[in-house]
Structure formats: C-alpha cells, structure tokens
C-alpha cells in the first residue's frame, strides 16, 4: 500500500478509536440495563410528585370524617372529593396548605348535569334555561348528598 494511503487510513482509525472512547465515557451507566434505554429513567418516572391524594385520605384521622360518611352514602359517592375540591396531596401532608376552594358556579355543576345530546339519557340532567331560576345549585342541592327538590 502507498504510504499516503496508509496515513489516510491511520487517521481514519484514530478517529474511530477516539469516537469509541468518547462514547464509552458519555453513555449513561444505566443505559441498556433493562432494554435499549436508560434504566434510571424508570426511577425518574416513578419519582414524579403525586398531586391527587384520593378520597380515602380525606376521611382518615378524623379530619373530615363526618362529611366523608355523608358523602360515602350519597349518590355522589362516585365523585371523588378532589374532582370538585382540586388536588390535595399537599394539603394532606401539611394542613396549612389549603387546596383551591371548590367551584360552586352553576356552570361547574353543569359540566355534568346540563342537558347534552351526547350524554347517556339515564344520567341526571337539567335544562339550565328552565331549571332553578339561575340560582346556585347548592342553594337547593347539597353537593355532598344531592337529592331532588
């Protein structure tokens, strides 16, 4: 082989070796641990903060026990506390941090209960134009234990 060609290929070989060295330094240790990805990323994904504590934690430790037992037997028992009161994990771990106050507007209740063609017919729905004279829903209905007027 001609010397100049030898030199060219030596340069190429050096470049490839440098690449391999850099690669072995830069690729994270946990890459390939479980598959073609960074194994530590699974831990990262598991460690994201929880915001919704769940209704059970509201009834615990005599905090909101009375309200909880009322809600538990009501027709609204499928509606979890935080669906109206907002995410409360921070409040559960520190009572001084208050969650957002519940939205009491007609429109908020209407998200579920205003009549919609696409809504299953057997679901409780009202016509906002004719029902309740524009009063707040909670004026007649207890959101924690709804009943019919």
């Amino acid at each position: 082989m001609q010397p100049h060609i030898k030199r060219a290929f030596t340069l190429l070989a050096i470049a490839i070796i440098v690449f391999i060295v850099i690669r072995s330094l830069v690729v994270p240790d946990s890459f390939g641990q479980y598959g073609w990805y960074r194994g530590d990323s699974v831990v990262d994904n598991r460690n994201f903060p929880v915001e919704y504590a769940g209704s059970a934690s509201c009834g615990e430790e005599n905090c909101h026990k009375t309200l909880y037992s009322i809600w538990e037997d009501s027709r609204h028992k499928t509606v979890n506390c935080e669906t109206c009161h907002g995410p409360s994990e921070k409040h559960v771990s520190n009572v001084r941090i208050m969650p957002q106050p519940a939205n009491e507007s007609r429109d908020f209740c209407g998200l579920c209960h205003f009549r919609q063609t696409a809504r299953p017919e057997d679901f409780s729905q009202i016509d906002p134009e004719t029902h309740g004279q524009n009063l707040r829903c909670a004026y007649c209905h207890n959101p924690h234990k709804p009943w019919f007027v």
């Binding site: 915001e51 919704y52 769940g54 609204h76 499928t78 979890n80 935080e82 669906t83 995410p87």
Partner: peptide, 10 residues
C-alpha cells in the same frame, strides 16, 4: 394509586 383521570371520573 389509580391514575388521576380514573380517580377523577364520576
């Protein structure tokens, strides 16, 4: 825990 959307669905 349940996913937030599952828990929120009434």
């Amino acid at each position: 825990l349940l996913p937030a959307c599952v828990q929120a669905c009434p």
